[in-house]
Write a protein that binds this DNA or RNA. Sequence first.
DNA 1: ATTAAAATTTAGACGAAACTAAACTTTTTT
DNA 2: AAAAAAGTTTAGTTTCGTCTAAATTTTAAT
Lengths: 219, 219
Amino acid sequence: MNFSIAEENYIKAIWRLQQSDANVTTNELAAELQTKPASVTDMLKRLSEKKLLNYAPYYGVKLTADGKKLALSIIRKHRLWEYFLVEKLQFNWDAVHDIAEELEHVSSPELIERLDAFLGYPKADPHGDPIPDSKGRMTSISNLTLQQLPEAQPAIVTGVGDQSSSLLELLRQKNIGIGTKLEIKQRHAFDGSVEIKIRNQPLINLSEQLAKNILVKPQ
Amino acid sequence: MNFSIAEENYIKAIWRLQQSDANVTTNELAAELQTKPASVTDMLKRLSEKKLLNYAPYYGVKLTADGKKLALSIIRKHRLWEYFLVEKLQFNWDAVHDIAEELEHVSSPELIERLDAFLGYPKADPHGDPIPDSKGRMTSISNLTLQQLPEAQPAIVTGVGDQSSSLLELLRQKNIGIGTKLEIKQRHAFDGSVEIKIRNQPLINLSEQLAKNILVKPQ
DNA sequence: ATTAAAATTTAGACGAAACTAAACTTTTTT
DNA sequence: AAAAAAGTTTAGTTTCGTCTAAATTTTAAT
Ligand SMILES: [Mn+2]
Ligand SMILES: [Mn+2]
Ligand SMILES: [Mn+2]
Ligand SMILES: [Mn+2]
């Protein structure tokens, strides 16, 4: 079966919200998709009709197995294209999301398998988010934030809290990216900010807000 | 300004038909786009409203300068993606058209400039069709067909008459592609077929119909 | 347990892009 | 020049995806 761009964007948004919230509501979706609750209700009925989700009026929505499969196939395309844009076309990591938002709707499965091979079967996108394989399997992402990291514990950056260009731009400016090795030298009780050290670079200070949005894996 | 996928496909089709036929008619367009004449009339009014073409009811249509510019930018995207699919993703040349038909509508200009650079600024797509540069300029394609080539005149294949997969598949099977060097050894008056020689390969026979659809440049 | 607030759905409308059937123009034939 | 054929447009529907305003239901507060 073939789905419209609007339908695919809804399914992807529902999947994302479902990660933190078992039941996804109409208002959450309207906010996520920058649209109106009434429009969401209309679309939920159509998607329910197509068996991509179970819709309980007034109580929200949950993806079916088919819905999840579709969501993961779109996420796979999105993240592979993002990887392509950064690794092959030299885009900055904060410039690729909107373009991938369009590319993810190109429908050829053959295209995406060949792209995957061409890229060398990458495991994660430029933001550290895992890329589902062709069967929809993927590794789960680290859930330890830099803010939670103990002092003097060396760690490696594995991801970011969100894809907002304000966050990504700030990190780029501070020379922090996926794979950056760092450790906390000092933690300030007053404002929750941290002094961190990256090899060959001077100490830098990160706000608590920023430290909460950097995912790390202890080394 | 931003245009819908349907609008872009109409503009591209009009451009193509305009190459052979100064004035493009409703029926021609309906056939080209696999739709109904009434639908074409509807769309022509909208595109005329948007100043992409001049529409004279009952007498057909011609692109404005803006319309031509848009057409060339879509053609540029289409052909660059086709080149990418063949050269980087190893698709056969008869498998790329439909995918490029989708990719050409991804709207980022930055994307297409970077793709062009990544590909090394190719001059022609896998079917020998010239790729317009970012300003819409392109070289014109050879207009000499293999059928018109004199006997014993060495020549190089530069393009094909159309993009149908039946033609492309047949040529692939006969080991004829862009850049193939060949010459006519004999011409059969009875059916217009030709015997051609490619280096290191046995003589092969091509029907008149096929020879008319291979573009060549004498060497 | 009522009432107030928040969330959600329904009703009715609209624009885009398609369709069929009918009407109208232009072109071709006789 | 009239009639027939071909080509094109108009009129009226349909589906998709959106919107606003009003009605309804659920949840929270008194
Ligand atoms: Mn998208
Ligand atoms: Mn990403
Ligand atoms: Mn297209
Ligand atoms: Mn081509």
